[in-house]
Design a protein around this nucleic acid. Sequence first.
DNA 1: GTCTATACACAGATAGAC
DNA 2: GTCTATCTGTGTATAGAC
Lengths: 216, 216
Amino acid sequence: MTDSEPVLAELEPTTGERLLAGAAEMFREKGYAATSTRALAARLGIQNASLYHHIGGKEDLLYRLCMVTLDDVAERFAQVLDVQRDPSEALGLLATGYLDQALRDRDRHATMLSELRSLSTDRRAEVVGRRDENVARVQETVIAAQAAGQLREEIDPKYLTLALFNLLNWSIFWFSPDGDLDRDELGRILSSVYFDGIRDRAQDETNTPEGGARCA
Amino acid sequence: MTDSEPVLAELEPTTGERLLAGAAEMFREKGYAATSTRALAARLGIQNASLYHHIGGKEDLLYRLCMVTLDDVAERFAQVLDVQRDPSEALGLLATGYLDQALRDRDRHATMLSELRSLSTDRRAEVVGRRDENVARVQETVIAAQAAGQLREEIDPKYLTLALFNLLNWSIFWFSPDGDLDRDELGRILSSVYFDGIRDRAQDETNTPEGGARCA
DNA sequence: GTCTATACACAGATAGAC
DNA sequence: GTCTATCTGTGTATAGAC
């Protein structure tokens, strides 16, 4: 056993891991097609040819990136849904959990969302299938919350789900950790807009028996 | 005067116009970097070299595409804002107008939104500046609506505005005119979610004096 | 306004030494 | 696991005839 194979702790990322992280960063900045394998290799301090010891081809990087990213989301969703909860509470946790993870790993998530089209047909279908599984978990929760009388039923759950991903996904492209808003605050704002809308209902406070609690 | 220069009607698009439309379509499908000038020329039925009679370089296409798209939005916004209106009504019209236009011209809008990074620094700054002007029109309207007591004031207008563009922009990437939802229906759904949220408030109908009208 | 021919840079990928 | 050297295809763009 040598110290290049730590057993209990990964003290340093392997070249394979650094490669994937570097690819995510460059793919996000310049796009997949505009990122050359030479530039990617240079970023790791190795030669272009050395990359091919770790990957079969450039496309492998994009494919792996997409898959691990979607797996992470699936795992996060499972953690929320493994516990018996009120459906609308579960929906809120799915939303904030997804956003939290996506904003922590913006490079990978943005790449997954915008560079899918560069994958081969087969791999793209596989990735889209896995993404749709995650979306399905959310949609099932929306449906449960509608059945529980918690969400408006006159809108097709499919579109309530799409509206949520609209709200969350586009944030990944403009959010900056250096901005005046942190991940949690953005999650609270978007959840609040999603569930309650932006209309001011303050005037109802004086009219409803409970002091407007249901409308707030 | 020859019939190749119609005065009152453009019977056929010029090669320059076909070029811009073809570029938008291909940039959207494959991305700017992955679209070769040869493929673009082939799409118009001409040789690669012939393109350079119409443009100075490939990047010109992306730049022009972005600018005309943002100009169209600016014009649409101006039409809404030139009329004196209730601020929240104006906001609704800005939202549905923007979405309508973006979904009619998905190729150009999607390209503008996702391929900005491929522009040179100077041109990118110019495009971003023009985009920000459009966003500013919306944010001003949000602020006016807050001041009029129509929108929740505890959320920074900046984020109310971003939430709206989240909701609208991501739709451009998944909307299909062949789907079971048309542009207007999507506009109504997203506006409804944006203004009123997805929470069911039906139970208040039996409690509020006005029959729940304010909460519906 | 479109063509043929071509220049030249750079892409992804491989062979084989160390 | 990384290197040097290299193959081959394709990219954007230009020159100059028609």
